[in-house]
């Protein structure tokens, strides 16, 4: 919580300081008005406390006063409106050099996709000192992406894209929240649903980010390599076409028993589905096609090294069962 004050969280984006400046301008204006109002009120209550023999003075009127306390606050409010709008525009329009990250909110998770197609769940690795634009959509109900340390927030609406941009000024972990109420599973205990729909922004330096894009993220804590591979297969949509039970008729080759299986290719050659073949089929699916699957056009998938290893480990495991 470095740099945070008792009122505001740490300033970790280029935008935070100007929001805070305006916040404190309004804060001190409010303090001045409040002290003025309550001070004068308190003074009058004490000073004009009812005394025997002293009557209230008959009420007069003063148009000067009425105009003064209408017009002076109005001028103040117009200035505040102007500053707020200017600052809002800077916060809404992302620089054209922004790095676009695709964000999808769903009950109750956040999915992030990097420009090279790599995906992360509830955690996203981002470079420091680079303007980043989130292009966000929702898979179900309303959500909202809120990063207090960056002073940014934007609703995530089903059926349309909304955007949010920021430039982080420090490396480290930054907490993001869902701030549009989105329910909770019935009957479940513990922190579930809306209040558990959190994400961590892992802000790293440029070099680490480049490396991350090449090698991909590491397995989530507590998952074995094969378990992570299974999660990736399910989340990435592989199961739409590939079966994993070795039995069902699916449009694409079944994963069960695939590892080290001999397959006849459309080119007429026979190959063994080893690690290299599986890797190639994920990254360039059209390079070598198993005979009988010519009409199926699988798109190329982008995964980091560790993710590819995990998927291969999962397919191996399926073949050992």
């Amino acid at each position: 919580m470095e740099l945070s004050t008792y009122q505001l969280p740490a300033q970790l984006s280029t935008y935070a300081a100007e929001v805070d400046w305006l916040y404190y301008v309004i804060f001190w204006i409010s303090v001045a008005f409040f002290v003025g109002i309550v001070g004068v009120m308190g003074y009058f209550v004490v000073r004009y406390r009812s005394k025997p023999g002293v009557r209230a003075k008959k009420t007069g009127h003063s148009n000067t006063l009425e105009v003064a306390w209408t017009v002076l606050p109005l001028i103040l409010l117009i200035v505040l409106f102007h500053w707020g709008f200017q600052s809002y525009v800077r916060g809404s329009v992302a620089p054209s050099s922004s790095l676009d990250i695709r964000v999808r909110g769903a009950q109750w998770l956040w999915e992030f996709r990097h420009p090279n197609g790599m995906e992360e769940l509830n955690e996203v690795t981002l470079p420091v000192g680079t303007p980043i634009r989130f292009i966000m959509s929702s898979g179900d109900v309303l959500h909202s992406f809120f990063v207090p340390d960056f002073r940014v927030k934007q609703d995530v609406v089903p059926g349309r894209y909304s955007t949010l941009w920021f430039e982080a000024t420090k490396t480290g972990k930054v907490q993001a929240y869902c701030t549009e109420y989105c329910g909770a599973p019935e009957g479940a205990t513990g922190n579930v649903g809306h209040s558990a729909m959190l994400a961590t922004l892992n802000i790293v330096d440029e070099e680490t980010y480049e490396k991350f894009l090449e090698k991909g993220p590491a397995a989530p804590e507590g998952l074995s390599e094969a378990e992570w591979g299974k999660e990736l297969v399910e989340k990435s949509g592989c199961r739409t076409c590939h079966g994993v039970d070795g039995a069902s008729q699916m449009p694409a080759p079944n994963f069960k028993g695939l590892y080290m299986r001999e397959e006849k290719m459309t080119s007429g050659k026979t190959i063994v589905a080893d690690e290299n073949y599986i890797r190639e089929s994920i990254l360039q699916p059209q390079a070598k096609i198993v005979s009988g699957y010519e009409n199926l056009l699988m798109p190329p998938y982008k995964f980091g090294e560790a993710q590819l290893d995990a998927i291969i480990a999962y397919i191996k495991e399926l073949s050992q069962e």
């Binding site: 309004i26 204006i29 927030k153």
Partner: peptide, 23 residues
């Protein structure tokens, strides 16, 4: 009510509202 009204100015001011909205 003065506190309620004055804090309304924070929320009427755009960039500050974006930060404070739904908190």
């Amino acid at each position: 009510f003065s506190i309620g009204g004055l804090t309304g100015i924070f929320l009427g001011t755009l960039s500050v509202d974006i930060f404070l909205h739904d908190t």
